[in-house]
Design a protein around this nucleic acid. Sequence first.
DNA 1: TGGCAACTGACAAGTTTTTGTCACTAAATT
DNA 2: AATTTAGTGACAAAAACTTGTCAGTTGCCA
Lengths: 221, 221
Amino acid sequence: MRRADRLMQLVQFLRDGTLHRASDLAAATQVSLRTIYRDMETLAASGVPIEGERGIGYRVTAAITLPPLNLTMTEMEALHLGLHAVGQSTDAELSAAARALSSKLDAVMPEDRSRAPSGYGFAIYPFADAARGFQHLPSLRQAVRTRQKLELTLQDETRTVRPLQIDYWGRLWTCVVWCERKAGFDEIRVDQITRMRILPSLFVDEKGKSLRDFNALRQGS
Amino acid sequence: MRRADRLMQLVQFLRDGTLHRASDLAAATQVSLRTIYRDMETLAASGVPIEGERGIGYRVTAAITLPPLNLTMTEMEALHLGLHAVGQSTDAELSAAARALSSKLDAVMPEDRSRAPSGYGFAIYPFADAARGFQHLPSLRQAVRTRQKLELTLQDETRTVRPLQIDYWGRLWTCVVWCERKAGFDEIRVDQITRMRILPSLFVDEKGKSLRDFNALRQGS
DNA sequence: TGGCAACTGACAAGTTTTTGTCACTAAATT
DNA sequence: AATTTAGTGACAAAAACTTGTCAGTTGCCA
């Protein structure tokens, strides 16, 4: 893996922010000039903010490059929430940066239309609404973990459900439940929950009512 | 770039959340069992959240993977500030997530000398192809949301398509589309799009042309 | 204008990676 | 105990990638 090593080395050289001529880089890495040009192309295409000016040399423009990150849904939510908070800050520069970063994140969030309840993408949805349901999340999570039934009220309608799985799409939380009254699965938007009560009764997986069954259904349809 | 293509294909298969045996994947990709195991190792090392269980099969654990991001210093500061704020939250799980994310970020910050070489994508293989397509993502995403047809050029071939779903598989972005000319589904690599134009005409789900139909086909085959 | 240094395309030679095969081991479920 | 399926190590052949060379072009600056 000699090439990858050299690419990393080149980034190290360029990180100091000063100008570098391709010929210098070639000498430093013991490689031909042509290869340096090819490397620069690869790096630029890989997202490293490199700029080459004819008759001048190379320099890196932006400061920090983050490698690919794997986030849990909760971490993603923390990220959005935190940036939203900073976006409200009085420091104009800082709040602008927070909003800019939020946009960047929105732009690269995986979007899966087949799973989202059709009609509302997270971009359309005002953050405030999502935040309203946010208060219920901790106890909802607990109920999913401890497998306790819930009594919850959505739009003046109260029902008893078995909470199975919490999902997060960018800005919206939903919960997959088995509804006792309708005797069927449902996907509930957490922000639409107006009241919620954890019931003392526990539940166990029953044939046709488990998360596995829900996933099977979702696949099949 | 045959291997990269296969890796992408594999993530597509695994993305449906169901179990997959290595032997099935091998048959589907026309490749030996041993190669599948090697591919799984590569994908896991590349950050795709894959889990294999002995006697069971493979599945992806739902998580969000962010592509490499370039941040300014101010944006980085906003990020840290926001996460710090959320870290103070009363929701134990959320504040834990914020702190975990802070650690992750610290681990990949330039100041940290102990950067893992594998943290950079090009240490494994260049993901230049993936990065090249990033520029089209925001408008592509918009088109998926607003259900607008697209005219796009791939390798000197221009076609009109209905964008249905955007997928990110760790290194490459793809878009599932219905191609008007071929009258069939296609999975387009965003990095191979050379030109793209959002057309004013909207589209609606039609029998045989919807995302649901595409998924049914993928299951069946 | 001349000099500098970034760029580009093509191609053969060299090097590395990828692959299949084979012979195993390791958990988990039945 | 038998079965199923993931996972490992080694090695040679095949495929893919990387590199240097060469012969250019382009843009900026003095």
